[in-house]
Structures are given as C-alpha cells and as structure tokens.
Design a binder for these strands. Structure first.
Length: 258
DNA sequence: ATGGCTTGCACCGCAAGA
C-alpha cells in the first residue's frame, strides 16, 4: 500500500493539482490538509470519477482535513473518526479511518505562530491531547500511521538555516520535545529510516524565492507504528508539484508499505 | 529590514499561514 500526505493550501485552488498528482504518483491513500472549504464544497464526485473515495472534515476559510482512498480498498464507514475524541475543538484538524486494517490518521497540527503566544499554547495543548489519544489508538490498532503537516521540524538537519531559526516557531525545544514524545509512543519517522541527501525539505515559503534557494523546512511527516515501520520499503518527498504553476507551499510525502 | 507571497473573505485591506 502506497500512502501519502499533502498540505494543499486550499483544495479549491489545488483541486487539479491533486487530480494530476494522483495520476503520476499512483498512491492508494492520500491524506490532505488545509482544505479551507466547507464539506458541501468538497469535490467528492470529481475524486470518485478518478477512482477515489473520500472522507473529510472541513470548515470555512481555515484548516480542514481529508483522506482519499483508491477504489477496491476496504474501508468500513464505522471506523471513521473526526477530530481528537474528548478534545473539544471547533478547528477541523484530524480525520481517521481504518483502511485495509491500517489505522490512517490525517492531521493538520496547529501552526503555533510564535513561542509564548496564545496560539503556541493552543498548539502545545493540542499536541498533548493527540499524544494521550494515540496511546489508546495504538493499543487498539497495532498497524497505525500518523500522516500530516506537523508544523514541527524535528531536528536541525530538517532546517535549511538552523542558526537563523534557532528557538523560533516550528523548531522550538518545546515543540521538538512533543515530537519526541510521539516517537516515545513507539512511532518511527518513516523518512529517517532511509538514506537521503542533505537538505531535503517539505515546505518552502512563497516569499524570497525560497523554493529556488531550497530555503525550506521538513515539517510534513509520516510516523509509523513498529509493525508498519518494519514493512515500510521507502519514504520520499516529491518536489515536483512544488514546481507547478500556482503551487501549494508544501510538497507531498510518500511511503510504501508492503 | 518583521518585510517578502498566497489564500479567503468581503468589499479592498485585513488575518493567517510557516
């Protein structure tokens, strides 16, 4: 099974990009973030025509997550969960489904704005709630994958200029400690299971020619439970869609699980 | 140099992203 995650920064604007990328990537499961549309505007029929079923949790203007699943894969409607159970939140950031026996979570982690801000406190609270919820999820579903825009660059090698970014939002010690806590649940960063060249990133600012300078961060991740990590044969970031016209600022991350 | 792009909303300049 080929699984992927992509923050599309408005599905309305990026719908054709997603369609095109489904053709070239041939993924079985695609987790989407930052849909920025209400559920009635989700192009379900268009994806269905492409051979993908979809589940989503959207809202107006901000956030919104979804999962596209190739026809033929087994998905029980009763396994779909929206948001983090028990964590009251009007922001639509999580949707979960069991696909072919694999617990797939599509998550849009809060940005946090800046350490010390109100939004940063919300981010840390959200991370704690996610962690606590995952304890039970992992107990129930040994084959689990947490995919999404984490808005955390786990290590300095995930940052184009660690000195310039030191202590800032997305790389601060508090956020990195929360990432380590997720790893502590027994999850594995699929990307780091394999050798890659240096300076591979998943996000580049729209400004200052950041993509051309490769001034990016690796903030989109696929974390796998141990049984899945053992059968994962590759994990890569596909920079190609970032070169398309009017691109998302994020690139998709893809993992093969056999 | 706290800007720089891009989006959505709503009515055009703002919030928010990362």
């Amino acid at each position: 099974m080929k699984i992927a995650t992509w923050n599309v920064n408005s599905l309305k604007v990026r719908q054709q990009h997603v369609m095109d990328w489904l053709e070239t990537s041939q993924v079985d499961v695609l987790c989407l973030q930052e849909l920025k549309l209400t559920d009635d505007k989700f192009p379900r029929a268009e994806f269905e025509a492409k051979g993908y079923r979809s589940w989503f949790a959207g809202q107006k203007t901000y956030n919104g997550v979804g999962i596209l699943v190739r026809d033929g894969l087994n998905v029980d409607e009763s396994t779909i969960v929206r948001n983090i159970p028990g964590h009251e939140d009007p922001q639509q950031r999580v949707i979960t489904a069991t696909i072919e026996g694999v617990r797939i979570i599509s998550a849009y982690f809060p940005n946090g704005q800046a350490p010390g801000s109100e939004k940063f406190a919300y981010k840390l609270g959200w991370l704690a709630a996610l962690h606590d919820w995952l304890v039970g999820e992992l107990a129930q579903h040994p084959r689990l994958a947490l995919l999404g825009d984490y808005n955390i660059a786990p290590e300095d090698r995930d940052v184009h200029d660690p000195k310039a970014w030191e202590g800032q939002n997305l790389v601060s010690p508090e956020e990195r400690a929360e990432f380590v806590r997720l790893i502590g649940l027994g999850l594995v960063d699929a990307f780091r299971q394999f050798d890659h060249p240096e300076k591979i990133f998943s996000w580049w600012d729209y400004r200052m020619l950041a993509f051309r300078r490769n001034a990016g961060l690796r903030i989109d991740h696929i974390l796998l439970s141990q049984p899945l990590a053992k059968v994962c044969t590759s994990c890569d970031i596909d920079k190609v869609p970032r070169k398309w016209e009017q691109p998302s600022d994020h690139a998709p991350v893809v993992a093969q699980i056999d």
